[in-house]
Design a protein around this nucleic acid. Sequence first.
DNA 1: CTAGGGTTAG
Length: 461
Amino acid sequence: MQDLKMGRLVHDIVLKHGLLADKFACAALVDMYAKCKVVDDARQLFDKMQNRDLVTWTVMIGAFAECRNADESLVLFDWMIEEGVVPDKVAMVTIVNACAKLGAMYRASLVRYYICRNKFSLDVILGTAMIDMYAKCGCIDSAREIFDRMQVKNVITWSAMIAAYGYHGHGRKAIDIFHMMLNSGVSPNVITFVSLLYACSHSGLIEEGLRFFSLMWDEFAVRADVKHYTCMVDLLGRAGRLDEALELVESMAVEKDERLWGALLGACRIHGNIDLAEKAVNSLLELQPDNAGHYVLLSNIYARAGRWKDVAKMRDMMSQRRLKKVPGLTWIEVDNKTYEFSTGDRTHPRSEKIYAMLESLGKKLELAGYVPDTNFVLHDVDEEVKLGMLYSHSEKLAIAFGLIATADGTPIRITKNLRVCGDCHTFSKFVSAITQRVIIVRDVNRFHHFREGTCSCGDYW
DNA sequence: CTAGGGTTAG
């Protein structure tokens, strides 16, 4: 049931007949609100219920992970345990899913401990959820361990592993898994191919990607949808084959969406193709006139080409339409606590040390050849102010804090709400070289593993 | 036996 109007009607009837004490009726209503994405209504009802049982808790926890902040799922889970409700396997899958969404490594390890201690067997669903959780927490090897231990794997399990290798930049391994899957007799589906093509494009495996794209229909009867085309546009576009990418877009018989044009625009950014970028943005703005991200991306492309008048034009368009760039946030877990940073943030208790660290780090980095790229600052301010803004990007603050607060040699794991900024990407490479630290960044799309001055994404993101 | 569970594209 996903009809909110009807759902509220049913809610009224339940109230009228005094059925609020009935846990089945209430759980179903909570679930209905959750599925209609009105999580606050679900929570209100949940709070009013007298006898909440495990299923109701599970629905509520899942609703938060689905609709809003997975952090709230974890809080609720703790509360449930405190109330003495004992989770079962389905509840664990729900909480594993919340950890995956958050990328919260510490919580993930607690959950694993809980699962082991209570001897929940790794059935195909719990195992698959754990693969996804580990991968999205940046621990691709742990994900693979779970995968290898699983006795029963279905198409979702295989797809999750292929996808995981894909967004960690291990295209070859994704292809290996795909072949293992075929050998085991499981047939790939639509999502398997999205994951596989994505893995190819993000590892620059052009010929392989093209081959799989034609194979999917010819050999597996899986019809290409807009997502597969998006992967192919990305694959060709990254490789600089923009003409072919455009040709594909123009020839496809499937309805085009904003992410397809977004892939083309991303390729234009990498290769500095302004004409095509403008075409892509025009199509994007037809579909989503209020998405600030599109303006920002085009503005960055202009900035890189030194077309400052056009940058100003974009900025004016944005302010006319009252569009604001989504503020960048970065999270880092230190000593089992999550810290959040925004640009120029000085709220952290160790803020002075963090800025001091950034300053000394900056000097070393610049000696090593790092040149801050103020083109990534969109604001119309003096160069010096730009430099200050650039150096206080949330990512850099989180990395500096990680360097201060964690032991030498331990990897630094951070999570971002946006795509990684080009300058922060360069910065992270230099930091990994100079400090001998591995830096693992989860951005909104994928993972970057920085090690000894290089990134696993091969600078294509 | 009946409410609740996993994978995907910029």
